[in-house]
């Protein structure tokens, strides 16, 4: 049964962050990832009646992101080492498999946990993801070592992961 367009649009809006996150890995550039998401959104909305059913929608979107992203990579023709299409397919399957019935709760918890980031880590994460600065640029701006920036970012990811898990099992905050 074709997927109604309102379901497609809702899914695009709900999954925007993770699809862009995936596109980022595919093309290696945040702005290009936004472009890929735009292309995929256009295609998904216009062709929603050709997607088998709602259960296949997320998979369709991930595949479209991969293909559109690979196309973008070729057009950019940069000498940049990026993951192979085989590796991307593995990620695609892992993404589809990771979606559970409580996915919206998971995203809500993640957003709440992000709000709990404070102080220096928050500043660095904002520079990294809000202003799209690379760790080397952040190090220059903040006067810290590049390794410290990497460590702060990876620890922030670890803390967010723990916080989300605690929130989904019981109430808890960032540690």
């Amino acid at each position: 049964m074709p997927v109604p367009s309102d379901i497609v649009v809702k899914q695009l809006m709900q999954r925007r962050a993770e699809l862009i996150g995936y596109a980022w890995i595919v093309v290696g550039d945040a702005d290009a990832a936004e472009d890929v998401f735009q292309e995929v959104s256009v295609a998904a909305i216009r062709k929603c009646d050709e997607i088998a059913d709602a259960d296949h929608l997320l998979g369709w979107l991930y595949t479209a992101v991969r293909l559109e992203g690979l196309k973008a990579r070729r057009e950019r023709s940069r000498n940049r080492q990026l993951l192979s299409s085989e590796a991307l397919e593995v990620l695609e399957h892992a993404s589809a498999a990771s979606v559970g019935p409580d996915e919206s709760d998971h995203l809500a918890a993640l957003r709440e946990c992000i709000q709990q980031l404070q102080g220096g880590p928050r500043e660095i994460v904002e520079l990294r993801y809000g202003q799209n600065l690379k760790p080397a640029d952040i190090a220059q701006r903040t006067g810290k070592k590049v390794q410290t920036i990497y460590k702060t970012i990876t620890r922030a990811h670890g803390a967010l992961r723990e916080c989300v898990q605690r929130r989904l099992t019981s109430e808890g905050g960032l540690s």
Binding site: E18, I20, G21, Y22, Q115
Partner: peptide, 10 residues
Amino acid sequence: MKQAGTLREV
């Protein structure tokens, strides 16, 4: 990926 995308969104 999900966390990075969500951080960028936030």
